[in-house]
């Protein structure tokens, strides 16, 4: 493989990762606040469909993008309504919604299949895109890819460097203590659930307006939401590590396409599906890395310890357990 091919491959990885990246960051934000939104998979499809539909009807990709974000926030709002206000299980509501929104997307999107609509065009960043190797890999994309890259840093800085981020982590760890410190846990949780929903909606738009333009059945975005949910765990609820996971998954997908060309005797489906079991394998390795026995074995081996430390991360203690005030 030539240098140029490598650059092309990596450039594909960076742009292809954008939808999963956005969904992963969104869910990380939501789960950091102790809230679980399991409706991701269907929401990504529905918002992808809405993004394309609105963009097609108005011939304006920006409007399509905004509509998708709104859809993401609305679905999150339904989970919030049922769990925080009506006291229902976040998991159950999320599951049902993921199925509903998927079917809704296919049903409402039927008239828009296989049409050609507007999409975000490539916008090479001046000067930066001229840098050899790095330029074509990172700075020769459309603006959603740049936004995704910037968002990794923003999420990290927000969560770990601002008072707001500190309160976000606090409510996910202990809503009771958060309440004692003068915050309203339910309010913080719905704010971050909605913010996460906006990003999940943006992930859908990233599919139908950039990565896999247009709408079809299947759309090609199926499974993204589940992978994003797994990546949040993979990343130990840390935005940068979760983002690294998104790029790893994208790399596996792109490599699948290349392998298809190199070994034509293997059916194409194998390479399409391969990233999913590989992802499970990765998750397994990480789960083992966190076991106490492994930790103790690694105590005397410095390289192993730093390797394991990178993967260590624990779920917010109050994840999925909304706080009820003592009101009897």
């Amino acid at each position: 493989m030539s240098g140029l091919e490598w650059i092309l491959l990596l450039s594909g990885v960076v742009s292809g990762a954008t939808p999963i990246l956005l969904a992963t960051l969104g869910e990380t934000l939501t789960e950091k606040a102790g809230f679980v939104n399991l409706s991701l998979d269907g929401t990504v499809l529905l918002s992808a469909m809405v993004a394309f539909m609105v963009a097609f009807e108005t011939q304006n990709a920006i409007l399509g993008f905004l509509a998708a974000c709104l859809v993401g926030a609305l679905v999150a709002a339904v989970v919030v309504l049922f769990s925080l206000w009506l006291g229902q299980s976040q998991v159950a509501v999320g599951f049902v919604l993921t199925l509903t929104t998927r079917d809704l997307a296919y049903f409402l999107g039927n008239p828009y299949t296989r049409l050609h609509g507007p999409q975000f065009s490539t916008f090479p960043i001046p000067f930066l895109s001229d840098i050899p190797v790095l330029g074509p890999i990172f700075f020769h994309h459309n603006w959603m890819v740049y936004a995704g890259l910037a968002l990794i840093g923003f999420c990290w800085a927000y969560i770990y460097r601002t008072p707001m981020g500190l309160r976000l982590r606090a409510v996910g760890e202990s809503p009771k203590a958060s309440f004692a410190r003068g915050d309203n846990p339910a309010k913080l949780q719905w704010v971050y659930a909605l913010a996460g929903g906006v990003l999940v909606g943006a992930a859908g738009a990233a599919f139908s307006l950039c990565v896999k333009p247009g709408w079809g059945r299947p759309q090609g975005a199926e499974g993204t939401g589940w992978i994003a949910l797994a990546l949040v765990i993979f990343g130990g609820w840390h935005p940068v590590r979760a983002a690294a996971g998104a790029y790893l998954f994208s790399l596996l997908q792109v490599l699948g396409i290349y392998f298809q060309g190199w070994i034509p005797s293997v059916p194409a489906q194998v390479f399409q599906v391969a990233p999913f079991p590989l992802m499970i394998l990765t998750l397994l390795i990480i789960a083992y890395a966190r076991k106490t026995a492994t930790q103790e074995a690694a105590r005397r081996r410095l390289w192993m310890k730093s390797f394991l430390d990178f993967f260590s991360g624990t779920a917010p203690s109050a994840l999925g357990k909304p706080y009820r005030l003592e009101s009897f």
Binding site: L166, R167, A170, E173, A177, S178, R181, G182, S317
Partner: peptide, 13 residues
Amino acid sequence: FPVLSVLENFMIG
């Protein structure tokens, strides 16, 4: 907040 650092616990609120 058990997972957060002493200083972070001090700061929250």
